[in-house]
């Protein structure tokens, strides 16, 4: 369902000359569910991915906020708790793996802003998104609980990135407020309220689209816009796009390369 985020990420990284290698045979980290059932299992699931990356000699890049938090959490727990580290490694050993804590966990947003950087990105911009107003929506777990590269509530990384590609990031104070997460599966009604606030506030601040950096945020904001309209009797129609698509556009990549046509609310003509 999040193919557009996936392919646009690969496309822009390729365009930037970065070499992304898919982690072979990766497994789902279990999102938040394993933590509610068995902490150890949650940690081992993430540790397997970390161990696979370590074996490849690579750091681990993720485009999902929840994976990011889970992987960081695993790294931190294993570092801080020697007993736990031993137990996890004993289990990994049974499947022929081991993890020594050398893998750095990175989020695509952090890498683009801090590693690739302003200059390299600006150099690649051939069709700047002039006069285009974007609400940067970070979601929660990219900055919480671990606020490694930005403020836990008012981050600015994506704001800066948006300005580098010629667009304008509107002031969007709800940028890290919750979209409801997985509660949208369980209590859609409750989530619709949260989603409505997020969408409405973006529209009010003049945004012409909301940029996301997490598959679940993308899903909740994009898929339930119709339900919000129905429930609150309003007419919202704001495009929700992975931020990587906006970069792709500015880089002059074709709509197909970045999966633009698959979005539920299409971006305005003027920039596509």
């Amino acid at each position: 369902m999040q193919k557009p985020y996936d392919i646009s990420t690969r496309a822009i990284m390729k365009h930037l000359g970065a070499d992304l290698v898919e982690l072979e045979d990766w497994n789902c980290c279990g999102a938040t569910f394993y933590h509610s059932v068995d902490e150890l299992q949650a940690l081992v699931l993430s540790a397997r991915n970390l161990a696979l990356a370590e074996r490849m000699g690579n750091n681990l890049l993720t485009i999902c906020n929840a994976c990011y938090t889970n992987l960081l959490k695993t790294n931190m727990y294993l570092k801080k708790n020697a007993n736990l580290n031993k137990t996890v490694n004993e289990i990994l050993e049974k499947i022929g793996l081991s993890y020594h804590g050398s893998v750095k966990v990175r989020h695509i947003l952090e890498v683009l802003v801090n590693d690739v950087g302003e200059q390299s990105i600006k150099e690649k911009v051939i069709s700047p998104l002039k006069d285009f107003k974007v609400a940067p929506y970070y979601g929660c777990q990219i900055v919480r609980p671990f606020h490694i590269f930005d403020d836990p509530e008012f981050p600015t990384s994506m704001d800066r990135l948006i300005s580098w590609i010629g667009a304008t990031a509107v002031s969007y104070p709800l940028k890290t407020k919750c979209c409801g997460g997985m509660l949208s599966f369980l209590n859609k009604e409750a989530c619709l309220g949260l989603i409505k606030d997020l969408l409405q506030s973006a529209v009010k601040s003049g945004a012409e689209c909301i940029a996301t950096c997490c598959p679940l945020c993308q899903t909740n904001l994009e898929m339930f816009q119709e339900d919000v309209n129905k429930k609150y009797n309003i007419q919202l129609s704001i495009p929700i796009v992975p931020f990587t698509q906006l970069i792709g556009l500015a880089f002059g990549l074709s709509p197909d390369e970045i999966g633009l046509k698959a979005m539920l609310v299409p971006l305005k003509k003027k920039i596509t």
Partner: peptide, 21 residues
Amino acid sequence: VSCYLCTTRCPAGIRITDLLY
């Protein structure tokens, strides 16, 4: 919903989200 807002804001340093897990 595991948004961790309580955890980062808690003035007593309690990891509330983890406590709920």
